[in-house]
């Protein structure tokens, strides 16, 4: 019986060589790659998310752990994983809305979501509503994430959601909104399914909406 808790805790503590050793040990003991991923690494990222929310870990350290985790997955687990194992929570299309070129917060959320087991299709910055609708049609995600940093571009979130409604795709997806000036009140006004103030709670929210 492998110690998945050890993997999770060492990942959260940033003990990189130890994590590699423990993952290798688990594989040698015949544990499945999916179980190591779910109960070890992703649990570890969950701990990191909580620490981030409580401001016990700084963002650059979070990024460092996430990047390391993705190396471990790619190098040690990926060949052993089945289609679908990586992304138990499904697909999210993400975009910074038209007129807005700010994506640091969006990218952070994407990274946390990927670490938590979502497949993310990132459409980038300054994305017109038409492109977003097209991507939903093409990729069939179960969620859409929209972000804006500027108070002057926030209204474009509503325009985009209205466009999704007009195109008849609204019922297929949950819509999450975020960005510095965005709050729950705004999310309610524009008819989003959820709002989160930071990347960690965005991950929790996305998971709860996915289920």
């Amino acid at each position: 019986m492998s110690d998945f808790v050890q993997i999770a805790e060492n990942l959260a503590a940033g003990n990189k060589p130890r994590v590699r050793e423990l993952v290798q040990l688990a594989l040698d003991q015949g544990e499945s790659a999916k179980k190591i991923l779910d109960e070890g690494l992703m649990k570890g990222m969950g701990i990191v998310g909580g620490m981030m929310e409580r401001e016990e870990i700084m963002i650059p350290e979070v990024l460092d752990v996430a990047q390391f985790m993705s190396h471990v997955i790619n190098e040690m687990l990926k060949p052993l994983l089945l289609e679908g194992d990586m992304n138990p929570y499904g697909k999210v299309v993400f975009a910074t809305v038209q007129g807005d070129v700010h994506d640091i917060g969006k990218n952070l959320v994407i990274m946390m979501l990927e670490g938590a087991g979502f497949q993310v299709i990132d459409l980038g910055i300054d994305v017109p509503p038409e492109t977003i609708v097209e991507s939903i049609r093409e990729n069939q995600p179960n969620m859409l994430g929209l972000s804006a940093l500027l108070t002057t571009t926030m209204p474009m979130i509503k325009t985009t959601i209205d466009h999704v409604i007009d195109s008849g795709l609204r019922d297929q997806i949950k819509i999450l909104v975020g960005g510095a000036p965005v709050d729950q009140e705004f999310a309610d006004e524009v008819g989003a399914d959820g709002y989160a103030p930071d990347a960690s709670s965005a991950t929790q929210l996305a998971k709860s909406l996915a289920n």
Binding site: E55, M58, I59, P60, I104, G105, A180, D198
Partner: peptide
């Protein structure tokens, strides 16, 4: 940036 949360 505030490196705890990337706020300004």
């Amino acid at each position: 940036a505030n490196l705890w949360n990337l706020g300004y």
